[in-house]
């Protein structure tokens, strides 16, 4: 009798895993960059292409790095949320305009409002590649020493912001 119960046992384990699997998202890829220094770049600013910015300029600050583009529809979904966050002023948001025409990007910011302290331009997506960007929008939380602490892929939601990003940002600011 006992050995005939083995298939049932294996099956029960399988069902438990499949049940857990229902809650997971197979498309969400965790970034290997978490806990590692934010990759360096020196990119022109959208507001004034003659000036450049690099992550080193933000040492000592906790900041959000939001990768977006004018052609990206789901970036519009999180835009209002970002504007609200910028108004609260808890954590500064820096943007990166990914594989885009600067003119189009400026038009979007003029039309919908600008939540970013500054936006850097990544026209060929090379910096995006270093950050492991695979689907805009993506958002990184970077601490005072320039280490990436959190990454969210896809449009931000109020829930993610309230439960994950803001508590972590506040903790890192202390």
């Amino acid at each position: 009798m006992k050995r005939f119960l083995i298939p049932l046992g294996i099956f029960i384990v399988l069902v438990i895993f499949l049940g857990i699997g229902l809650k997971l998202n197979p498309r969400e890829v965790p970034s290997p960059l978490i806990g590692k220094p934010a990759p360096d770049f020196k990119l022109a600013l959208l507001s004034d292409p003659s000036r450049q910015m690099s992550p080193a300029d933000l040492r000592g600050k906790v900041w959000l790095f939001n990768v977006w583009a004018s052609w990206c529809g789901s970036c519009r979904q999180e835009h209002d949320l970002l504007l609200g966050l910028a108004r609260q002023g808890i954590v500064p948001i820096y943007g990166m305009d990914y594989k885009d025409q600067p003119g189009d990007a400026r038009a979007v910011l003029t039309r919908f409002g600008n939540p970013y302290v500054e936006t850097v331009i990544d026209p060929d997506g090379r910096t995006g590649m270093n950050y492991g960007v695979y689907g805009v929008p993506e958002t990184y939380l970077i601490d005072k020493t320039g280490i990436i602490r959190y990454k969210h892929t896809g449009p931000l939601t109020q829930e993610i912001l309230d439960k994950k990003i803001l508590p972590l940002a506040k903790e890192l600011q202390q």
Binding site: V29, P32, M129, Y134
Partner: peptide, 8 residues
Amino acid sequence: LTDRYGDF
């Protein structure tokens, strides 16, 4: 590639 995107 794995440095940026992981074993995935």
